[in-house]
Simulated assay, not measured.
Amino acid sequence: MDEKKSSHMYFIGKKDDLVEAKRTHVTLDGRDILIIYHQRVFYAMDLQCYHAGSTLLNGDIEEINKQLCIICPKHKYKITLAEGEGLYRAANPAEKVKRWYSKGIKQRVHKVMEVDEDIFVTLSDCPGYIESDYYQTAKGRAELSKAHDSDSAPDADADD
């Protein structure tokens, strides 16, 4: 992203409206963003999950390893709201007990600011590629569109 775009604050809406909605999604500078209000804090991140592009709009929010995470409804990937870090649970053979591990930053998160009861988002200027960036590209969007079209096609094997 260039410096000019990354420092722009986009008006999202009035605080009271966004608090009431709890979640909303917007497109800012061609990027699909999910805005979440949870436990009196606003968060913003890319709308599509980094793993396979499923929307995070209806993902459950849980505390995992002392961090608030959104759970992708499609494949249950866990993503921290504050940092966009992917978490997974595994057992270290030496410890024989499961614990949470980090995959690193996988989901691009964006800065949310409140100014006089108005909510603004500034797109992330974090350099480098983050996996959720893929679904913001023309190739990623085409893949999502193709998957959506096949999901909405009638299924001959579907139960009635």
Rank of each mutant, 00 (worst) to 15 (best):
A138I: 11
T27S: 03
I79D: 08
R31A: 01
R141H: 01
F120L: 03
K5H: 05
V97Q: 12
C126P: 01
T80N: 13
Y135H: 05
I33R: 01
P127T: 07
R141G: 00
L34W: 08
A44I: 06
I79Y: 09
A138Y: 08
S6H: 12
I36T: 14
P73D: 04
L47K: 00
G13Q: 07
L28I: 03
A91Q: 12
L81C: 06
K76Q: 14
A90E: 15
S54N: 07
L81E: 08
K14Q: 10
I105T: 12
W100M: 10
S7W: 08
V115R: 14
V112L: 09
K139W: 09
M9V: 04
E131I: 02
T80E: 09
D32I: 00
P73M: 04
G13K: 04
V41Y: 13
A153N: 11
A142Q: 15
Y10H: 12
R99S: 15
L34Y: 12
E95H: 13
E3M: 15
S124T: 10
A142I: 05
E20C: 07
R89Q: 13
S54P: 01
G104F: 10
I36K: 03
L87C: 11
Y37D: 11
A158V: 05
K22I: 03
R23G: 05
T55E: 03
P127G: 10
K66P: 03
A91I: 14
T80Q: 12
G30C: 07
D17N: 13
I12P: 00
R141L: 00
A21G: 10
A153R: 15
I71R: 07
L123V: 06
A158N: 06
A147I: 10
P127H: 09
V97W: 07
A142G: 10
K96G: 04
H8P: 00
W100I: 09
D118A: 05
I70S: 01
E20K: 15
P154D: 08
R40C: 00
D159C: 01
Y77R: 10
S102H: 06
I71K: 07
S7F: 11
H25E: 01
N58W: 13
A138E: 15
H38C: 10
C49N: 04
M9Y: 08
K96N: 09
D16L: 11
L57V: 05
V97T: 13
Y37K: 13
V26P: 00
L28M: 02
I70F: 04
M1F: 02
S132H: 01
K15G: 11
P73I: 02
A21W: 08
I64K: 12
V97Y: 06
